[in-house]
């Protein structure tokens, strides 16, 4: 009985948190269902009647350029997150398990890198890529996102906790090369950590606006964020295409939700793995 009030407070807080997170999403959902004429006339939480019409209009907008942006976003976020995860895992493992001169220096520089917001780097990166003749290419958006100090930091922390030294020693005694140790022993143990990094990076790149905004000139290479922004800022003398933007925003979070739902089980292994080890 006496445990009740103790449980009520955290539950209440969590419920508040859930409302805080879900309210904007439900606003987007409800607004996306409103036809252009209903958007500013119906009450905020009253669903409209135009969802299918909005989707159809978005689909037809400039010959379906929205889906091209969606595909671009998948390429940037999927490719970028995958490469970033691999680089982070390898570097994190190396930093955690090998003692070599300069290790701490490298690690400290990385930690310093976490403190530099990527927004600050976007313009210098643009100028660099322009010098290389690579501005306005897919690489211009992919490459800068691959090296991510925070992910390397996470990978190091995870590797030092999840990969026991004794296991590596055993592998070495059995004659495995270092590469084989990494691929066959360390990586499988690091999967939950890598999934975390992948998801972090995927969401970060998916939502990234400034870098692609500066890097890309060709609207066929835009990701969703920049593409939808061209609908919003359609010039002072053009009405913004609000219904298309809101519908587009709704559709653009669906892949994220799907990704989280499918990736969730890897996280569960992570938690149970920890529990077993005690």
């Amino acid at each position: 009985m006496s445990r009740r009030p103790v449980g009520a407070l955290p539950t209440g807080l969590l419920v508040l948190g859930a409302i805080y997170c879900l309210l904007p999403v439900s606003w987007v959902l409800i607004s996306a269902s409103k036809a252009p004429g209903e958007l500013f006339t119906l009450g905020t939480l009253t669903p409209g009647t135009g969802l299918l019409e909005n989707v159809r209009e978005l689909n037809a907008y400039r010959h379906g350029v929205f889906w091209r942006w969606m595909l671009n976003s998948v390429v940037y976020a999927g490719g970028g997150a995958l490469l970033s995860t691999l680089v982070s895992a390898v570097s994190g493992f190396a930093l955690a398990k090998y003692a070599f001169p300069g290790r701490n220096l490298i690690f400290n520089v990385l930690i310093g890198g976490i403190l530099v917001p990527s927004v600050v780097l976007a313009v210098p990166q643009y100028l660099l890529f322009s010098k290389l003749g690579m501005a306005d290419t897919y690489w211009a958006v992919l490459l800068p996102q691959i090296l991510h100090p925070y992910s390397i930091y996470l990978a190091r922390v995870y590797a030092s906790a999840a990969v026991p030294d004794s296991l590596l020693e055993a592998g070495r005694i059995d004659g495995a090369s270092e590469g084989r140790l990494l691929a066959r022993v360390a990586m499988p143990l690091m999967v939950p950590g890598m999934v975390t990094i992948f998801l972090f990076q995927f969401v970060a790149i998916w939502n990234n606006f400034l870098l692609p905004f500066i890097m890309l000139g060709d609207d066929g290479k835009f990701p969703l964020t920049v593409g939808l922004y061209t609908l919003l800022a359609a010039g002072a003398n053009q009405p913004s295409l609000y219904n298309l933007i809101i519908t587009g925003a709704l559709l653009s979070i669906i892949p994220l939700i799907a990704l989280f739902l499918t990736m969730q089980r890897y996280w569960r292994t992570d938690l149970s793995g920890g529990a077993l080890k005690g």
Binding site: R62, Y126, F213, G217, V226, T230, A233, A234, Q238
Partner: peptide
């Protein structure tokens, strides 16, 4: 190449 309009468009062109 369709861009976003407004003040940001000017900044982007200058960059």
């Amino acid at each position: 190449s369709k861009q976003a309009g407004g003040d940001d468009a000017a900044a982007k062109f200058l960059t």
